[in-house]
Design a binder for these strands. Structure first.
Lengths: 203, 203, 203, 203
DNA sequence: GACTAAGCGAGACGGTACGTCGCGTCTTAAA
DNA sequence: TTTAAGACGCGACGTACCGTCTCGCTTAGTC
């Protein structure tokens, strides 16, 4: 008469999940977010569509999941180099390198439009990806302030925008290559600003 | 059966074109690039799908056309204020205002992913939209150099990235509002950088 | 992820199939094969276009399916009347009556051009429709031979062509009505031929 | 005041007409009635669509025009061979040969469905194509009656159906090849019938 | 020689239907 | 209860042709 509560049935399998993510990665690499379809992932992974929907709300969600895994594997703390400029350049360059050499760049290009349409997706992206970067940046700037390299009241938010705004501008809009000396200039601009102070000499 | 070249056939009707663009604008305003479909534009404009395809290759192309018309109407030269910082702030704020108050912002968000997938689209966007901004910026910086406000060798490309990178970073990624004092900070950072010179004091 | 074969998934629903066939019949009756469109069948039946395509390759295939159902319902064995001529006349008249009173005539007219273009369709038609007639005819001729009414070596193929060639000639080309005494003449011609024998008196 | 009637303007050019027919023939040969489109004919002939529509109501009409030209070129009277059976066999074989070796067969297969849908087309076909055959057949049967080879009251209509019904049955429905001895059998059947008389021996 | 019809090419246009892709939901049977 | 399989309704895609419609030129007459 089914009075029991404890029936648990078949357990979700980790292999299934991995198969899905792997297929997603392969498709993403070959065709970008554009070519990513649930149908395609199901076919390539041998997993049923239903199973995928049980775990992710949309293909964007799925792409983001892949991206997050990627970010987590790339995590790497920047150590104290005793030189703020060098630390920042290394930091920005690390981000650039990931964008250039992994799926990250293509996935970002494909996902960015979805952030505006899907707040939940945007939230997840910021929480998992941006936050880490901001934390890292905070550590670097704290050291910089301690050393007296930059103003006490330098705003982390501005720092982030000045350093990475140009990076994504190139990735999304201008299509210019993201190379090394490019990072230097962004860092120099930020340093000039942060050293001088907000109310610094004008005109 | 004839050998002439000059036969021209029926000319594309401007009314038809306008009807399509207007319908596109309406849908874009209501539902964004996401909700834009050729089918929908055809239905709303009373124009046949085929006619739309005859003029634009894709809905992204169509959205871009709308955006370009918008930009062309907004064109406005910045006059000499005698103050570079003020001119730049006004310049950036003008862009921000357009993003905030017209369809431009939403359309950009929706279109940005397509630039990576469709080089032709990206090329058109840069040519029609970015180029104008760069020209304008050039004029401002020329005046600034003439006045001695910034270094002779300041790079227009960098200027563009430093000023607008943060703007689009907010629009695309962080979702933070694009308000007034935001423009000031980006301009101050650029000015600090451009005044100091590239090989300026380090550490 | 699994290796089994036996998963069966959701089964095609007979209601869906019947809805499609019924809508097809209605359209066929009203507008003929000419007016039959998958789009129309989908609309009238409330079934999705894709579902129709999942079951039939083309509208011709669909029309044939309807025709086959019709034929299967009309199947009716001719019993021994003790008189070959009477049996054949009844047989031909039965076919004529179906062509005259059901959709069969119109559908055949509309389908006939497709047989030449679509061998698969032609094959299906012959298998399902012609074969039955030939079987029936075989039984009648066997009885005729047993009675000594016709030659032992009368060819079933020729019989079929002599009896039904004129019928379809009228249906397809001359447009003359298919009435009763018409069948008699075709049967008489065949009987004269089959009784006389192939090498019979000439000139 | 336009009282005149006789303004004539530019005359339709025969070259244009021929170019259209030639293109039609080529397409018909390659792709059959199925692949025949006004658009295609216009493209291949270099003639404007409008010009084609000015002369023919539909692609079927156009195909029929081609077929009629073909028939007119093939016209050939059968001479008195002194032997009715031989004359009929030659007559049927001539028709078969045309169907087998020219476009006629394919065009007939493609057009036959349109006869039912387009009475005007059917009328034109009968008038231009069938009529000639019936006239020819009449001459042969007149000679046969004169010779006493067949009954006085043999019906020309029946003759036509008995002789050509089987031919078109093969062409349209059974797909069996139209070869030589096939004609003999149809003729023999007709002869047996026509010699014996309608009210001939039964049972 | 100017005027006036038509013929003609080119090609835009509104349509209808095509056949396909992918979505997200559902049903079924097996694990 | 999860899973693979796959049917299903749905919305949109981009394409093929349809038949009609300007448009501007060419070709013949007629006045």
């Amino acid at each position: 008469m089914q009075t029991e509560v404890a029936h648990r049935g078949r357990q979700p399998s980790p292999e299934t999940e991995e198969a899905i993510l792997e297929a997603t990665r392969e498709i993403l690499a070959k065709e970008g977010v554009r070519g990513l379809t649930i149908e395609g992932v199901a076919a390539r992974s041998g997993v049923a569509k239903t199973t995928i929907y049980r775990r992710w709300r949309s293909k964007h969600d799925l792409a983001l999941a892949v991206l997050i895994v990627m970010v987590e594997q790339q995590v790497q703390s920047s150590h104290d180099l005793g030189d703020t400029r060098a630390e920042l350049i290394a930091f920005v360059n690390r981000a650039i390198k990931i964008l250039n050499t992994t799926l990250m760049g293509r996935v970002m290009q494909g996902l960015v439009s979805d952030f505006a349409a899907d707040p939940e997706l945007a939230r997840a992206f910021r929480e998992k990806v941006v936050t880490r970067r901001v934390e890292e940046l905070t550590r670097i700037l704290d050291r910089a302030i301690a050393r007296g390299n930059i103003r006490r009241d330098a705003d982390i938010e501005i720092a982030n925008e000045l350093l990475f705004g140009p990076v994504y501008y190139r990735l999304f809009l201008s299509g210019k290559p993201l190379n090394k000396d490019f990072a230097e200039r962004a860092v120099d601009a930020f340093m000039a600003y942060a050293r001088a102070g907000r109310g610094a000499p004008r005109k």
